[in-house]
Design a protein around this nucleic acid. Structure first.
Length: 680
DNA sequence: TAGCCTCGAGTTCA
DNA sequence: CTCGAGGCTA
């Protein structure tokens, strides 16, 4: 395996042979250096080989290939990152924070699989790198696309930056390279690299990065890959995406295949038979944590067998076959100086802790949400207390507990407000609810936040209209409700502070553009209580137009999946309020025309709703719902006059009776299947 | 009626 | 990210 500088082809053998040879050697030494950590040549020798290759490629441009080591650093900077939609979404993991929760995970796995509790499942354990998830796509062995995780469905194209990672092969080596291979991995910075980068930053008088993860994120998001190339990022691969022409039956086989192709895998990955071995691994990694050359924030336990993984399946955002075992987050002690009150869009008054600024894992924290007064009472948090603070998931600060031994007696107990701190209206706690609400209709922050919500990215997406401008619109009296946005003129905007022609045009353009948004966005934008993004979309699909939704009866609303009495009532009262109708009318009059929601294809069941009841034998409830939705229908939970069909399995009970009472058509499972078959 | 599972709403810092 | 709450299923 050892390659020496002497027993290789000489330049006289022809440039092509030499170029191939140099590439082979450079990749080989890259791997020895970065992956196996056993360099065989000095840096100077490596540089000599690299420069020779560069010279040859300059001389013979025809010989340049995209997987050449010289091509790791691309040319010019990008304008922006292009979005990439992942073929399979990148899910997140459920968390466990201690051994007990890890054991609960194991019990859940066995319960779902129907295995006895004393069965020892084969798991794979890995350190959980504190970095950024990416997805790499190799087509016919060649790295073609690398993208960030993004929201799990769509990420950003960071191929040029990923190519600068020296431990990553641009072309897969070894036998039986698959036609298409997607690999998920974690990009991170070693502590050494992190310190080096920060030293450089400080020399240049720039602010240092708070921690290695931020530094890695900053480096990966560089538009100029030449800058990224100077930040020695690393990467470990850990999970497959789509793989065509490769079949691994287990996580272990997958890791072995990765190693065979030259992809970097964390050497600390280890199998564990039975959950106790996995718990031991977790404990062991926690011991080793401080001596590792990179940061980890826990371990990951996965069911080894892909067959079992498939059987366990996924919930909406996380698989049931893996768990992230988090180490206790880094904590800090500080003083809680005050409890501030923040009023949200819905009037909920949330207590926020004002803290004496304290540094936690590189970031200075001065505020932390306290959620509600039950929480404050439960933890017995008082103003003036010395408290332990941590950053949950290393992001959002949270007050964990107080240190009562530090009390002086001067601490003050905080009570829920009786009046809204912003508008002075009565603040009440509705029965059975934890939240305290401001009941004022004209409460300024509520109005400001609801208009900002209307304009926000996932609602009407009025680019540039944030809190700041909404505030000014309100204080200048230019806007009372969201409808007024559509009557603003250029002159109105020019009254703003620091407003130029350009900015005014942009805002007007953004408002104009928002007139045509999908119906679901508009419904979401209205800010009806209990109607978030998902529900709004469901309503848009079910009713097709704002007018239909306005007229919808409580019964009709309840017959929609995931809408129960509470949500239906909330929607009804929103539209029963004349003020709301006026705002909507004024908006429509200004030319707001919601666009059609993308209808599902087929649609033979469109407008039809199905209720499944009793024990189904030919399909599960989920499958049944899927089949109905695929044909454009709704599968709902309860029978009403609006229900088109009730499909009754064995031992159907009250729903079947109700269907008969109301005269709704009742189908057997077989009849339902017949209905599904194409009409012709 | 309990126990999932999802959704909604509020939140931090750079 | 977290908590609370609504809806659905067993």
């Amino acid at each position: 395996m050892q390659l020496s500088l002497l027993d290789v082809a000489s330049p006289e053998d022809g440039p092509r042979t030499r170029v191939d040879e140099l590439r082979r050697q450079l990749e080989h030494h890259n791997r020895l250096y970065y992956v196996l950590d056993t360099p065989a040549i000095t840096d100077a020798e490596y540089d000599a080989l690299f420069r020779e290759l560069q010279r040859l490629e300059e001389q013979y441009p025809d010989l340049v290939t995209p997987d050449s080591p010289t091509q790791r650093v691309g040319g010019a900077a990008l304008e922006k990152f292009t979005p990439v939609t992942h073929r399979l979404p990148l899910l997140s993991l459920e968390n466990a924070t201690n051994a007990e929760e890890i054991r609960e995970f194991d019990l859940r796995v066995k319960k779902v699989l129907g295995l006895p509790q004393d069965e020892a499942i084969s798991y794979i354990c890995e350190p959980k790198m504190d970095g950024l998830a990416v997805e790499l796509v190799y087509e016919d062995g060649l790295l073609t696309v690398a993208s960030t995780r993004g929201d799990g469905v769509t990420g950003e194209d960071v191929t040029e930056n990923i190519r600068t990672i020296r431990s990553l092969p641009l072309r897969l080596s070894g036998e039986s390279v698959p036609g298409l291979l997607e690999v998920r991995g974690e990009v991170f910075l070693s502590l050494d690299a992190f310190q080096k980068i920060n030293a450089e930053k400080e020399e240049n008088g720039e602010a240092p990065f708070a921690n290695p993860r931020n530094a890695a994120a900053g480096s990966l998001r560089q538009l100029d890959p030449r800058i990224t190339a100077r930040r020695p990022l690393s990467l470990y691969c850990y999970a497959p995406g789509v793989a065509e022409g490769a079949d691994f039956l287990s996580q272990q086989e997958f890791f072995a295949a990765l190693a065979g192709w030259g992809l970097p895998v964390n050497p600390l990955v280890r199998p564990a038979v039975g959950i106790e071995a996995a718990v031991a691994y977790y404990d062991e990694m926690q011991q080793q944590r401080e001596s590792l050359p990179y940061e980890i924030d826990g371990t990951v336990i996965k069911v080894d067998s892909f067959a079992l993984q498939g059987e366990l399946g996924e919930k909406s955002r996380s698989p049931r076959w893996a768990v992230a075992c988090k180490f206790p987050p880094r904590q800090a002690v500080t003083v809680l100086e005050d409890i501030l009150l923040s009023v949200g869009r819905t009037g909920v008054i949330t207590p926020v802790a004002q803290l004496r600024p304290v540094e936690i894992s590189g970031v200075t924290v001065s505020r932390a949400t306290l959620h509600n007064w039950d929480e404050i009472a439960l933890k017995d948090i008082r103003i003036g207390d010395t408290v332990v603070v941590e950053r949950a998931g290393d992001v959002i600060p949270a007050v964990v507990r107080v240190l009562p031994e530090k009390r002086t007696g001067a601490e003050q107990v905080a009570f829920p407000p009786e009046k809204c701190p912003e508008c002075g209206s009565a603040a009440t706690r509705i029965a059975d609810e934890v939240a305290v609400r401001c009941m004022g209709l004209a409460c300024p922050p509520q109005i400001r936040e609801s208009i900002a919500h209307f304009a926000s990215r996932n609602a009407m997406d009025i680019d540039g209209l944030g809190d700041k401008f909404v505030e000014q619109l309100l204080s200048l009296g230019l806007v009372q409700s969201v409808a007024d946005l559509y009557y603003l003129t250029r002159d109105d905007f020019m009254r703003f502070e620091r407003m130029g022609d350009k900015l005014a045009s942009n805002l007007l353009g953004a408002i104009e553009a928002s007139k045509q948004r999908e119906l679901g966005r508009l419904i979401f934008a209205l800010g009806i209580r209990h109607v978030g993004e998902r529900t709004a979309k469901a309503l848009a699909q079910a009713f097709g137009s704002l007018e239909n939704l306005e007229k919808a009866t409580f019964e009709e609303l309840v017959s929609i999946r995931d809408i129960g009495a509470t949500v239906a009532q909330s929607i009804r009262s929103f539209f029963d309020n004349q003020a709301n109708i006026d705002v909507i009318q004024r908006m429509l009059a200004a030319g707001v025309t919601p666009t059609e929601e993308k209808k599902k294809v087929g649609g033979r069941f469109s407008g039809k709703s199905f209720v499944f009841t009793g024990a189904l034998t030919r399909f599960t409830r989920d499958e049944a719902r899927q089949m109905v939705e695929d044909e454009g229908g709704n599968a709902v939970g309860s029978v009403s006059r609006k229900t088109s069909y009730v499909v009754a399995g064995e031992d159907a009970g009250s729903k079947l009776n109700k269907a008969r009472e109301l005269g709704v058509t009742v189908l057997t499972e077989d009849e339902f299947i017949t209905l599904l078959e194409p009409a012709d």
